Simulated scan of single mutants.
Amino acid sequence: MIAAITGTAHAVDAAGVMRLLPARPRLLALGEPTHGEEVLLGLRNELFRQLVEEEGYRTIAIESDCVMGLVVDDYVASGTGTLDEVMARGFSHEWGAFPANRELVRWMRAYNDGRPAADRLRFAGFDGPLEITGAASPRQALTALHGYLTAWVDADLLPCPAETLDRLLGSDDRWTNPAAMTDPSRSVGRTPEARQLRLLADDLVELLYEQTPHLVAASSREGWDRARLYGRTATGLLRYHFWMADPSPSRMARLLGVRDSMMAANLLALAERGPALVNAHNGHLQRDRSAMRMGGLPVEWWSAGAIVGTHLGEEYAFLASAIGTIRHRGVDTPPPDTVEGLLYALPEERYLVDARRLAAALAETTPAARVSPWFGYSPLDPGQVAGTDGIVFVKDARES
């Protein structure tokens, strides 16, 4: 068995990745089984550099707030702000505190220095302005969209003045109340004001598309694309808040589904720009239906990767990552009858595995599912191996 698996393992580099795929994908998704391990973030940085230099990739997108990510993109593309400011204001989920993310941003800015605009690297967050404890107010995205349209179209075409949006939005504290995550009655997502905002947001987005030829010519394609992002975010947040107010048993499934749908819409927009490396949790990028238990009950929804993969076909590729040990988190040597255990027996510290050849080699063995003692690490599902384009395996993650 070890000999058969050894034949599927190769060095982790851009050339090796491309050999696994029928063609260069527009979106190359690199998943991770846990967040915050520097060894995985460093590997991502190395792979992105190679994709830039050898394969013509120009964009990286990570699981961070899409609106905050504009701060990072402005810095790497044109030097707006300082590195310290960008790391503090351009990331959600505390991603700005990780040294590997700082190094990524620093390297991208240095790479872009002196290059023509068409050849510069770009950065994107593709998550919504969401946290596990709640969601942002739609104010920033909604007012930015309205402001863009106000600047470029006749006032008579707008569905309402800015003052109407401000009145309906009210205090942002109403939207961000953390109690609403566990108590639907505390959410404002189904108030008369929120329902009216959903209609107005829909009208603003429709106006943006209706006026596409004029807006692109009068402002820029870049400005129009950014307004589209604001529109997706505003409507997505209002939909998310609507389902936060839902008292039915399907509430969590709908919330998780809305989040990944927002991610998918952002990724499909990025795919229009050209080839991009996407980095997020395996669960958001996999082609299979996602599942987890919340409050003791099973919850299922379609991941962003499943949605995007359906749209793009072979132009979407997914590499799942797995780790042998995270000893500082209590994740020790994997059992030898699991997929991670079989890969852990190989001699190298990290390698890229041909997932389909691995699945064929394991067809008669039926590996056991690994169980992690730490909730923050999601082991590989043996039944999903064949649905990935490759597996990036790292033997040991060490505390930084």
Rank of each mutant, 00 (worst) to 15 (best):
residue 4 A to E: 11
residue 8 T to R: 10
residue 10 H to T: 15
residue 13 D to N: 15
residue 16 G to Q: 14
residue 22 P to L: 15
residue 38 E to W: 03
residue 39 V to K: 11
residue 59 T to C: 03
residue 64 S to F: 09
residue 68 M to Q: 13
residue 69 G to Y: 03
residue 73 D to S: 02
residue 80 T to I: 07
residue 89 R to T: 11
residue 96 G to L: 07
residue 106 R to N: 02
residue 112 N to V: 14
residue 116 P to W: 14
residue 121 L to Q: 08
residue 125 G to M: 14
residue 125 G to T: 13
residue 126 F to W: 12
residue 130 L to N: 01
residue 143 T to M: 01
residue 145 L to I: 01
residue 148 Y to N: 02
residue 149 L to N: 07
residue 159 P to V: 13
residue 159 P to F: 11
residue 160 C to H: 14
residue 161 P to S: 12
residue 161 P to D: 14
residue 176 T to L: 09
residue 188 V to F: 06
residue 191 T to N: 01
residue 202 D to R: 12
residue 206 E to C: 04
residue 210 E to C: 08
residue 222 E to L: 13
residue 235 T to A: 13
residue 245 A to Q: 06
residue 247 P to W: 10
residue 252 M to E: 11
residue 252 M to W: 11
residue 259 R to A: 03
residue 270 L to D: 06
residue 278 V to I: 15
residue 281 H to Q: 04
residue 285 L to G: 07
residue 289 R to V: 14
residue 289 R to N: 06
residue 292 M to S: 04
residue 294 M to P: 04
residue 297 L to T: 15
residue 299 V to C: 01
residue 301 W to N: 02
residue 313 G to Q: 05
residue 314 E to R: 13
residue 317 A to W: 08
residue 317 A to T: 14
residue 320 A to L: 14
residue 323 I to M: 13
residue 337 D to S: 11
residue 367 P to I: 15
residue 378 S to L: 12
residue 395 K to A: 01
